[in-house]
Each structure stands twice: as C-alpha cells, then as structure tokens.
C-alpha cells in the first residue's frame, strides 16, 4: 500500500473506481434498476449527511428535506435556465457544468443551513427538532410562492444528467468526508457534543461552533443530493420536499443505528429497496411498510445492524 494514502482514502478511491466501472457497464442494465440504484445512492448521501447532525453530533434536525430542496432548485436553475449563459464557461461540456451546478447548489444549501442553524442551534432536543421542521416547511412554502421557479407547478424538464457515476461518486465522497471529519482530531469534538454537551463545554470546546459545522456540512451534502435528485427525475415540486421526506431520512438514520457509518448506509439501501419491493402489494404497500417499521423498532430499537463488535465479543469471551 502506498504510504502517501491512508486506508480510508484508498477505500474511497477503490469505491470510486468500482462505480466508474459500474457506470461504463450501466448501458446493459434496464433503466428501472438504474433509477432505483440511483435512488439508493441519493438516499445514502442524505442519510449519511443527516447522520453527522443527528447521529454523531446528537442534534435532532427535522429539516433535511428543506436543504435538499434548496440544492435541487439551485442546481436545476443553473443547468436549465442559466445554462445558455453558463455553459460556454465550461466549453459546453456537461461533465464540467453539472458538477459545478451541483456544488453551487450544495453551497447555497450550506448557506441556508448556516442561516437556519445560527438562531436555532441554541435550542435543544425536541425544541430544535420543531424549529428545524418549521424552517423546512418555510423553505417549502417559499418555493411554492416563487413564480420564477414555477411556484406550485414546480420545475419541469430538467435535463437527466444524473448517472451512477455522479450519484455513487458523490455518495462515496460524502461518506468519506463525514468519516474523515469525525476521525480528525478536530472532529472528536462532534462526538463530545453528542455525548455530554455540558461536559464538552466545560472542557473548553466551542459546542455551538461544532453544531454549526455539523449543520452546514450536512446541509451542503443534502443540497448536492437534491441536485442529483432533480437531474434524475427531470422534475421537482416543492411538495416533494415536505416534512414527510425529512422523516424518511430520519428513519434511515435511526434504523441504521444513529452514528454508525455502515449501518446508516445499509438502512438507506434497505428502506429504498423495500419501498420498491412493496409495490407488489398495491394498496397494502404503505400499511405493510408502517407495520414493518413498528416491528423493526420494537425488536431492534438499537438499530438494525448493530451487533456486538468483535472486540466486545472477545472481551466477553475472555
């Protein structure tokens, strides 16, 4: 192993390479499988980024869909409406224009995150939850009233730039970033805030800043996920980014076991695929989904994929 890359960077690179190969073979997959796969990827980004806020930093946010909406609208406006002015900058190349639009979308979402976070992060627990929920709904209502982006009709005819490469590439980068951030010496502070905020503060940690960083980074990736979503589905509508969408993401984080990287990814995959598989049941789909959700929470409240680690098992055996 080359000494100038650490293990996780290598893993990231390997994942990106695999995704690249998968993309070059994707012509053989049917477009339904492809779109479900991309849905999975987008949910991984959403769940992992929310995991940074909810899981690792312990701040209960219910407004993730709002940030997703900001990113989706920004990116869609950039590639759709403003593309004629912009694309010469990128030589008319989609593979340069699209990531630029995504990143701008992410940045605007991050700004929204900062705007929301600054006043509300002083609140704790359920109060923070309701305030973020409120901001999410406010964002939705604002888009509903913005004639410039179609108002209640939403934006339609967004070019379908999203593909496996972009979606899973971004997903890998998101997971890596969250992981690397948490495992840097700076990032240990997030866990401290989650563990015991008062103790962390007493130790001299600037807890507000940590919460803010988690919020902004989370919002950034949610925005990028929104951009990918918009360019996968060709159309976006404010009502698609409501409170229920935020709840969907929260469920992934909690079923994944709050603050587990792999668990949350698996939960995102499971829930996305599950909702697709339940289509077989027609009208009963959502009933089955909700019963499954209740049963899962009752039987595995600690998260679906939490097993005693090998280390803990060894300790028990000894």
């Amino acid at each position: 192993m080359p000494s100038w890359l650490n293990r996780s960077q290598l893993l990231l690179m390997a994942t990106l390479a695999v995704v690249g190969i998968a993309q070059s073979l994707s012509g053989r997959l049917d477009s339904y499988i492809l779109s479900v796969a991309m849905g999975v990827g987008i949910n991984i980004i959403l769940a992992s980024s929310l995991n940074l806020i909810n899981g690792f930093t312990g701040q209960f946010s219910l407004g993730h869909a709002g940030f997703m909406a900001v990113g989706a609208y920004t990116a869609a406006v950039l590639t759709g409406r403003l593309a004629p002015q912009w694309s010469p900058l990128f030589g008319g190349q989609v593979f340069l224009l699209f990531p630029a639009a995504l990143i701008v979308g992410g940045i605007v979402a991050a700004l929204a995150g900062a705007l929301v976070g600054a006043p509300s992060l002083r609140l704790k627990g359920d109060y923070l939850a309701i305030v973020t929920l409120g901001f999410g709904e406010i964002i939705k209502v604002i888009f509903q009233n913005l004639e410039f982006v179609g108002g209640a009709k939403g934006l339609n005819g967004i070019p379908d730039y999203s593909n496996l490469l972009w979606v899973f590439g971004t997903a890998a980068i998101t997971v890596y970033t969250v992981w690397a951030l948490l495992n840097s010496s700076y990032g240990r502070g997030f866990l401290a805030v989650a563990d015991d905020e008062i103790a962390a503060e007493a130790m001299g940690l600037n807890t507000t800043r940590y919460k803010m960083v988690a919020f902004v980074v989370g919002a950034f990736f949610a925005g990028i996920a929104g951009g990918l979503f918009a360019h996968l589905n060709n159309s976006i509508n404010p009502s698609g980014f409501d409170f229920n969408k935020s709840i969907e993401i929260v469920v992934m984080v909690i079923l994944g076991g709050m603050g587990r990287h792999i668990g949350v990814i698996l939960a995102a995959i499971l829930l996305t695929v599950l909702t697709e598989m339940l289509r077989e049941f027609g009208d009963y789909r959502m009933v089955i989904y909700s019963v499954l959700l209740i049963l899962l929470m009752l039987t595995r409240p600690q998260g679906l994929f939490i097993w005693p680690t090998r280390k803990a098992a060894r300790r028990q055996n000894a």
């Binding site: 009208d283 959502m286 009933v287 909700s290 929470m297 009752l298």
Partner: peptide, 28 residues
C-alpha cells in the same frame, strides 16, 4: 410501553410508524 427505557428518538420513529399505519389503514 415496550420501548419505555429506550431513547425518545426510537419511540418517535415508532410513533411515526403508528401514524402511517392509521393513515394508510384508514385509507383502506
């Protein structure tokens, strides 16, 4: 009740499950 000693987040998700069940069951 089975989740009494669990974190409130766990109960919250269960509550959302119950809510979805009542809504969708109601539609049926």
């Amino acid at each position: 009740r089975p989740l009494r000693r669990r974190s409130t987040l766990t109960v919250l998700i269960t509550a959302i499950g119950v809510s979805l069940l009542l809504q969708n069951g109601g539609q049926l």
